[in-house]
Nucleic acid binder design. Sequence first.
DNA 1: AAGTAGATAGACCGGTCGGTCTATCACTGG
DNA 2: CCAGTGATAGACCGACCGGTCTATCTACTT
Lengths: 187, 187
Amino acid sequence: MTAPARPGPRDRLLAAARDLTYRHGVSVGVDAILKEAQVARRSLYQHFGGKDELVAEVLRATAAVDERRYADGLDSGGDEPRARLLALFDRLAEFTGREGFRGCRYIAAHSSLTSPEHPAYAVIIEHKDRVLAMLRAELDAMGHPEAEAAAIRLQFLVDAVLVEEAVRPGLGAAGLVRPLVEAVLDA
Amino acid sequence: MTAPARPGPRDRLLAAARDLTYRHGVSVGVDAILKEAQVARRSLYQHFGGKDELVAEVLRATAAVDERRYADGLDSGGDEPRARLLALFDRLAEFTGREGFRGCRYIAAHSSLTSPEHPAYAVIIEHKDRVLAMLRAELDAMGHPEAEAAAIRLQFLVDAVLVEEAVRPGLGAAGLVRPLVEAVLDA
DNA sequence: AAGTAGATAGACCGGTCGGTCTATCACTGG
DNA sequence: CCAGTGATAGACCGACCGGTCTATCTACTT
């Protein structure tokens, strides 16, 4: 009957920052994060050096989770690349329909960041590049004649779903793009 | 040889806020806006009551301009609805390629606004609704069998172009979505 | 048991936030 | 000529921003 062994300050900071920056944007104050994490002010600067690095680290962590989610989404479609990509958009429909969905963290962060010097900036771009590469790998595997352009188009559609569903919750964006996904795949 | 008759404080505030909120987001400080507009602090609160209303008013003003731009884009395609919609995306390519393009002001504002109570919130939704209606009108005119869904899909594509071109400048997003636009139109 | 490293609370720093206020100035119409 | 109106500059307000600092406490090491 041991206590749940609450995580250390570093992990609590990451978790709190992950939630708060998603709900309120990366402009949330450090005070709010510290309060939510129940962590001493000093611990933040000890572990991350400052708010900017904490934000970047949060995005690094969520990017890993999200990329795993994409990979799982593909795998849920089986072995055939076309089915795998269609399955990815099916999982996207579930994801955007979940309580608390508030859009794409990375796109929101990108438009909030003032300067490209912010350490989170590169994290965002690299995440998008890796997702693009995942899409491209499937298109290569299915022998798509225009794999690079098609991969970019699929990413457009993924991002469009994330953005529009945030602006108009309940729209069913993922279902609406289905025919467009098929159009890309069958080109 | 009269002086250019510089606009009054209200118009200077709107112009400065329009530029600064686009370049730095709606979170720009009022001090920066006042300095740029060369207007007394008091004038802002006299004319707009506060920053939130100023931001909302800026979006109202730019929405009118942008909707006119969409209408002009359609008109540049002539009379036939299909050609008009394709022309709209051609104009979009020019627009996103312009120096100083920084993405979609409304999507960025939407993700920055903390609460739906912000007066700018409704302005954003109404703007998107009006653009959607413009697209839908063309699809109705061309007798598209699924006009409503197709209009939403076209708006997805418009927004995707605006978002992606902001994240990856020089990508040529508008050109890349062309085949998808045609797929929507020919469905 | 003593020493040490890390976490704690919270005061404190200069700077900026949005917003209010006073006082002065320029222009207008009676 | 003078009153009224609206714009001006800028001091000022409390709140909050990100960040530093001191001091205390806890837990693990040896």
